[in-house]
């Protein structure tokens, strides 16, 4: 993300919105002005910042609990408004900050602190597929799911993130990149095993790819 901001030469006009979760300290890691938002509210705070000065480049950095559980309404409606912001959504299928509880994106059967017998879809329901869901929202401009489990995917992820920022520069509207990521700590795995799991379990459930590219679609017509 930071590389994309540098390469696009937008650091001095970029405002980041940190969320709640493992992402909470992102305001320490990005060398730009930042606002730390309440849990799930980053897209609403981003809306306020962007509407205050549309010439700024505004991004949110959110995890799966923040974006797909407590902040579902803010996510869906900022997409529906076609809010001209960039949303980076890190999906590692678990709540990391609080110590490994079930997330809205936890896979069926996956063991967590609050699904100790494995996620039972009969009682707690199914994971939320954010890109698929938002692809039905007319206001969303660009939705892509990427993974950071190997070098090839990492390069593709960077390309998608750069596009999500470029879209905002071009005034194209709501862009979201979902990044499938490992959490070795709370998956109780070695980093290597955790990366293998992204490939063997997450990607089959959350297929990679472009779920929506409004302007590309229009361009091909």
């Amino acid at each position: 993300m930071a590389e994309c901001i540098d390469e696009l030469g937008i650091q001095s006009k970029t405002i980041g919105i940190a969320s709640v979760g493992c992402s909470v300290f992102s305001y320490n890691y990005f060398n730009c002005d930042m606002v730390q938002a309440a849990h799930g509210r980053a897209p609403a705070v981003a809306t306020g910042v962007k509407r205050a000065d549309p010439s700024k480049i505004v991004f949110t950095y959110q995890g799966d609990g923040d974006l797909a559980a407590i902040g579902t309404a803010e996510t869906v409606h900022s997409a529906a408004r076609g809010e001209n912001i960039t949303v980076i959504f890190v999906n590692n299928a678990i709540y990391g900050m609080t110590g490994g509880q079930m997330a809205p994106t936890t896979l069926p059967g996956q063991v967590t602190q609050t699904s100790p017998y494995g996620r039972d879809v009969q009682t707690v329901g199914y994971p939320v597929k954010v890109c698929e869901m938002l692809s039905q929202v007319d206001g969303a401009a660009y939705l892509e799911r990427v993974a950071v489990n190997n070098v090839k995917n990492l390069m593709a992820a960077k390309k998608a993130i750069k596009k999500a920022f470029q879209n905002q520069i071009d005034g194209k509207g709501f862009s979201l990149v979902e990044v499938l990521s490992a959490c070795p700590t709370y998956w109780s795995m070695t980093p290597e095993k955790a990366l293998e799991r992204v490939a063997s379990e997450m990607i089959p459930y959350y297929p990679l790819g472009v779920y929506k590219d409004k302007y590309a679609e229009e361009g091909t017509k």
Binding site: A44, G48, V49, R51, A52, K56, E74
Partner: peptide
């Protein structure tokens, strides 16, 4: 100026936070 009807009161006050953080009277 900006008028925006939010999806909820919660979203509205968080938009206020964003605009206030950007230094605007909101």
């Amino acid at each position: 100026g900006v008028f925006l009807q939010a999806e909820s009161e919660i979203a509205a006050i968080n938009m206020v936070i964003g605009a206030a953080a950007a230094g605007k009277r909101v």
